[in-house]
């Protein structure tokens, strides 16, 4: 009896290993939370003081004049930058939603065997292309195509950045949308087919409605990606401060502004604070979008 009690209490290598792995995994798990809070605290600390004291909030949201380096009177109007980001993201979604949903429907509902596997791998590879490469494509290839095709003086504009960003966002949206479609039980498809539905009727009347939440969250994550993307937009959008009248106008995005200007500001200056204010805004917007996407997905599981 005594021996078995000892055996239960024994702390051998396996016990310590188990402990160590447990601690390691725990640290890994909470690091995500710690990091996100840390980033938020850092951005807020750098930007909040400026945002609450020096910055004219009304000017920030309503003036299109972003002139932080003006010798005479620096202005911090973010409206044009917001318009730039929104117009590029909007165009991107017009490109990405049909592409990604179409691809997801094809992969999930039509492709079989090898085709399916190959397509899935290709889509994932597409998602791994560095954004600077996309930016380069926008700068060197799309630019020329747009100039020739639409006979406009410059091809670095909303259309260029939107198409590039749409192609960048499409793979991740495809993957999530495909997961959502695959999660629809086959029972539903079989039931609909047994009632005489054609393949398209099965998809439009049963599968898509059943996967609606997942599809919405795929789109939202795509929007979040669009808001946050920096390098490709910087390279393809023309980077000129402008509220666009058409897709052929050059714009400048919030993210690109931070990327381009932060290196040249003095730490603690007004300009520095203004850029961090943009950062706070971006952080909050993407956080809300991602949170919404997450809640929408959870919505399915509850029901």
């Amino acid at each position: 009896m005594a021996r078995s009690a000892e055996a239960i209490d024994e702390r051998n290598l396996a016990w310590y290993l188990d402990r160590a792995v447990r601690v390691f995994v725990f640290v890994g798990g909470i690091s995500a939370i710690v990091l996100i809070i840390g980033i938020f605290v850092f951005i807020t600390r750098e930007g909040l003081e400026f945002a609450t004291t020096t910055l004219n909030i009304k000017e920030f949201f309503t003036s299109p004049r972003w002139a932080p380096t003006s010798e005479t009177r620096p202005t911090y109007g973010a409206l044009a930058l917001i318009a730039g980001t929104v117009s590029v993201t909007g165009t991107a979604m017009i490109v990405a939603i049909p592409f990604s949903l179409g691809a997801a429907i094809y992969i999930a509902e039509f492709a079989t065997g090898k085709t399916r596997e190959v397509l899935k791998v290709l889509v994932e590879m597409l998602a791994a292309i560095p954004s600077v490469v996309w930016g380069f494509i926008g700068l060197s290839i799309m630019n020329g195509i747009i100039i020739q095709l639409f006979n406009v003086p410059i091809g670095l504009n909303v259309l260029n950045a939107g198409v590039i960003l749409g192609l960048m966002a499409a793979p991740i949206m495809t993957t999530i949308a495909e997961d959502a479609l695959k999660a629809v039980p086959d029972d539903y498809r079989q039931a609909a087919e047994a009632m005489g539905a054609t393949r398209w009727q099965v998809i439009f009347k049963v599968v898509l409605p059943a996967a609606r939440n997942g599809l919405v969250s795929a789109v939202l994550l795509g929007v979040g990606r669009g808001f946050g993307e920096t390098m490709a937009v910087l390279m393809a959008s023309g980077h000129s401060i402008n509220i666009p009248d058409s897709v052929f106008d050059s714009v400048r995005a919030l993210t690109a502004t931070i990327a381009a200007e932060l290196g040249e500001t003095a730490v603690g200056s007004d300009h520095y604070g203004a850029l961090f204010t943009l950062g706070i805004m971006l952080f909050v917007v993407t956080f809300i979008i991602n949170l919404t996407a997450d809640l929408v997905v959870r919505g399915i599981k509850k029901r």
Partner: peptide, 13 residues
């Protein structure tokens, strides 16, 4: 020719 399945499978509508 209508069919009823083993597991009830109403649509999520």
């Amino acid at each position: 020719v209508g069919m009823v399945f083993q597991r009830p499978n109403p649509f999520p509508l």
